[in-house]
Design a binder for these strands. Structure first.
Lengths: 204, 204, 204, 204
DNA sequence: TATGAATGAGTTTTCATTCAT
DNA sequence: AATGAATGAAAACTCATTCAT
């Protein structure tokens, strides 16, 4: 086949994009390097020139997410806006936003399902995000805006609900349905945290 | 090798138990028939004497769940206890109970992760349970015991939270941690449904 | 399953009949002992009580043919009718007759196809029949009723044509087609052997 | 093991040649991919790099025949030589020729025996050749050079005799035997078609 | 005579990875 | 940087046969 040379970064990004799509569509285990290679129109060996293994490719994709998520998180954490409810809202909105951009791998079960043995690795992302959420909830309780006896556990559940919502929204096209799902989850957050009603109605 | 003959029911149950454990531990795709065979100490052909394929085994395991879950659900649905909160509590307790009995596959992501192409099949179980939960929530709203503008969506989230809790509890040994997680989820349910405080404190 | 006892001869005959049918339908290699066992409604072990192996069963079926064919042959060979054309006609008619009785295994390729490694064994039948035909042709030449420079080779081809015809007739239902095929083969025999026209018009 | 790289065409041809030989020797069903692989001295995966399955390999071998046979047939059909006897002779010679080149699969039963479920496919080749032969015989009758009341049936038998001869010759080394067999079949053709004696003495 | 659970060597196939060019 | 033929271990499954009851 004709030898098509591209800049390494371009090739690498292209392979990651193709791989990510296939991982989401068919799952990590049912996507073979050959599938990716075929779609990319490259030779068998070229794949291994860029990635040491299929696992290495997965790690690269996750790392990219980790970076993006870290960025979101630090933006929220370092934000001047002082109170917990707004911070929580921002994180929640960020996750919904990610779902719009089809950043498929982040989000509940799908991230696990996609990346076979790399679950521990993936959990880093979750743990990182979760600890931020827990910190926010604790802050909210301390500042008297949230009211709960189990801040860490509640934060965990709410975080999980957000991931769930993120996944649901990726599969829901109907705008009315989307609004209802978002509204229901916001009410749940407000009531669960004992916050002022309407505090979490975002503009999404 | 020495020939160990067992009754078909016994052998079949034994193989399903071993398989289920391995599916949970390593995932469906990373569990080979040979893994199961090795653990069971049988010959290659014996496995296929009982199950036509690896997929057939998966189906058998799921079917068993479907039966058990259906039993739970109909027990709750047909129960004399009249009000929605108690029914909801019973379903929730039932799911926690299942987790104690190590009925591993029921429960959020793990059920999906474990069973390759059988996702649609698994979703039947979820859909069945979910519709029961939605019905209960609607009943509660109608009877004035629950208060929510989005009964179906709320039911869906609460159901998902229950599955999440079920999974978490399977991985949590510390009794203090377990109590906290259960308590947090109960408070979440109560507040989300606008029910009387303490309504959902089960004895679990 | 209920234990159904039959006389050994009956069982054996039943199994041979079922096996023969399956061998013809699906071929020897694609018929498993389990196929036969299933159709017979017996247990796995029962099959091996009657036949030492699948091969042994094949041998038994062929032996039965060998006997039947031998009978036909000796009937023809010892027949009082003196001249070669009539003898040849009788053998040919006999083969056509066998085809009517659906004695499937005799007949050209099918006998080979059906019985995997037993080809040599099967060839005994052919060789036996062929030698009789060759003898008849030689007799016919000696008595001046046939005219050919290559009696043995001609006999071989004619014998093969008969087997071919036998096979064709088993697959031909239409009576007009059947008559044409038989007629064409008879003319071929007559002309090839330089016999009087009409000598071989049998009543079939 | 030492890695021996060959051009795809070479490897493919090599595998097909080895496979064909084994199919003829042991039969299709009793030849495993592993047999072919062992003889070729390659790795398990190399076989499947070239052929998607054992069946695919069979198809490839047959296709090659179909091409070769088609070539022969169209060469004869389009030949300037006008009369039917010569055309028939050419086809017959062509089949004998194929047998010399060890083009083993063409020829009666062996082609069926070798290729499991592919019988229908194989029959296409036969049907194609047969229709050409029938056409030639009809032409010969129309032009007054052949004399038969059953042109199609006679053509069918003669065609089958040719295939039989093709197979016999592949197993006959002795030149005297070969000549006799060819001569006998030629006389049979001449007499059967009521042609002038000596018309079909080819130089083979 | 008959049962049917159990065997195990073999077959067909997959796929992540390597390496000579 | 890129190629693509080749590798080999392991996965999934088959089936003729055995054996304790």
């Amino acid at each position: 086949m004709a030898r098509i040379t591209k800049s390494p970064d371009e090739r690498k990004a292209e392979l990651m994009a193709i791989a990510e799509q296939l991982f989401i569509e068919k799952g990590y285990d049912h996507t073979s390097p050959s599938d990716i290679i075929r779609k990319a129109g490259i030779a068998q060996g070229t794949f291994y020139y860029y990635f040491a293994s299929k696992d290495d490719l997965a790690r690269a994709i996750i790392d990219r997410y980790l970076d993006r998520v870290s960025e979101y998180v630090s933006r929220v954490a370092n934000d001047q806006t002082p109170d917990a409810p707004h911070k929580l809202l921002m994180i929640s909105d960020a996750l919904i936003d990610l779902s719009k951009k089809k950043m498929g791998l982040v989000g509940g079960a799908s991230i696990d399902r996609s990346l076979g043995g790399r679950a521990e690795y993936v959990n880093q992302i979750k743990a990182k995000l979760l600890s931020v959420v827990q910190q926010i909830v604790r802050q909210g309780v301390a500042e008297g805006q949230f009211n709960t006896d189990y801040p860490d556990e509640t934060a965990e559940i709410l975080f999980f609900v957000s991931l769930y919502l993120n996944r649901e929204l990726r599969n829901t096209r109907d705008p009315v349905e989307r609004k209802k799902k978002i509204a229901a989850s916001r009410v749940l957050m407000e009531r669960t945290l004992g916050t002022q009603e309407g505090m979490f109605r975002s503009s999404l």
